[in-house]
């Protein structure tokens, strides 16, 4: 369990329960526990009801991410991120049609409508996988994401649509958003810049 992976996982979750961190990292609970213990003793993580970064931990993570970024082929990564923006627009539109219908909350009473919206998720998934593959060539750490997205997609297909948008759990939207956050950071941008430029709309 390397330091960067663990710190970044905690940062993306904000506040996270111990059991959930091992689950989201898809790693052995004992191994994660000992890594958490080590980083807590080093003053990088703070333990309470939940686990979160200390200010030192945040600074350390920023440093590690900057080091990681220096090893990237910036141009190739920017290209992958630009392609992601296109799929991201489609995903966002799908999510808002799932949640809203004619400006009102979708009451999910129209199975045909819901099925049509969900049908588009497969297209999004197929489109994002190759983009993710080329981003992973630059940033191997991202190889965890295809499996996490696929796991959420399978649950949605099995009929449990809470795995599409629910926060806290690793729903498709949660994983997608964390992935987007990784890509923004690795491209040397910030979410505020991206939001102002309209790429997170």
């Amino acid at each position: 369990m390397d330091e960067l992976t663990l710190l970044q996982a905690v940062r993306l979750k904000g506040r996270v329960r111990h059991g959930d961190i091992a689950a989201t990292l898809d790693d052995d609970e004992a191994a994660v526990d000992s890594a958490v213990k080590e980083l807590t003793e080093a003053g990088l993580l703070m333990e309470g009801k939940t686990l979160r970064l200390s200010p030192d931990g945040r600074a350390r993570l920023t440093e590690l991410l900057a080091d990681e970024r220096r090893g990237l082929d910036a141009e190739a990564f920017a290209k992958a991120y630009d392609e992601f923006r296109g799929v991201n627009r489609e995903f966002k539109s799908l999510i808002s049609q799932w949640q809203l219908r004619h400006g009102e909350p979708n009451d999910h009473g129209d199975a045909d409508y819901d099925a049509a919206v969900l049908g588009r998720l497969d297209g999004v998934h197929q489109a994002v996988l190759p983009i993710l593959a080329s981003a992973t060539l630059q940033l191997p750490r991202l190889d965890a994401y295809p499996a996490k997205l696929s796991a959420a997609l399978e649950k949605v297909h099995a009929g449990d649509t809470t795995w599409l948008t629910r926060p806290i759990i690793d729903s498709y939207h949660t994983v997608w958003f964390e992935l987007h956050e990784e890509l923004i950071g690795a491209a040397g941008l910030t979410r505020e810049d991206e939001a102002k430029a309209g790429h997170t709309e």
């Binding site: 966002k92 539109s93 999510i95 808002s96 809203l100 948008t165 926060p167 309209g198 997170t200 709309e201």
Partner: peptide, 16 residues
């Protein structure tokens, strides 16, 4: 301050 109808804030707020 920033964000549109499909921003993270919008999606999550509707969900919860």
């Amino acid at each position: 301050e920033v964000g549109g109808a499909t921003s993270h804030a919008a999606v999550v707020s509707r969900e919860i």
